[in-house]
């Protein structure tokens, strides 16, 4: 098999397809802006649901930008993207269930240690 030929072809191909520097600078800038906003959430001491939705929104926005552009997932083929994202459903399930679990643990601690178990 003629692999020198193949390597040369690869070189040409990759040179053609690098992305413009502008896109990286844009994403970079956006990340700073989003980080600044999420910092502001604490600065202004938003509380309750507003705080949580803002924190999560900025977090996922930043994570999404890093993965999509810095890690090139936006340009990868779906075969790879899907393999990477589907397993996250297991994590999501774990998170939701453990959120339910800590409520229950807290409830039982309060109930038995502080209220006295309804005696």
């Amino acid at each position: 098999m003629d692999d020198t030929n193949q390597i040369n072809e690869k070189d040409k191909k990759s040179q053609e397809s690098t992305h413009k520097i502008g896109i990286y600078l844009w994403i970079w800038g956006l990340l700073f802006v989003l980080s600044f906003f999420s910092y502001m959430v604490d600065w202004y001491q938003f509380q309750g649901m507003l705080r949580w939705s803002l924190i999560l929104f900025f977090m996922f926005a930043k994570a999404g930008l890093i993965m999509a552009f810095f890690m090139h997932l936006f340009w990868e083929r779906y075969a790879l993207v899907n393999v990477l994202l589907w397993p996250m459903t297991a994590i999501a399930c774990f998170v939701f269930l453990m959120a339910a679990e800590f409520e229950y643990t807290l409830f039982s601690r309060m109930f038995y240690f502080f209220v006295g178990g309804g005696v």
């Binding site: 269930l97 339910a100 679990e101 409520e103 229950y104 039982s108």
Partner: peptide, 10 residues
Amino acid sequence: SGMNPWFGFF
């Protein structure tokens, strides 16, 4: 184990 009783259903 004493986990959240609703989990049994799930």
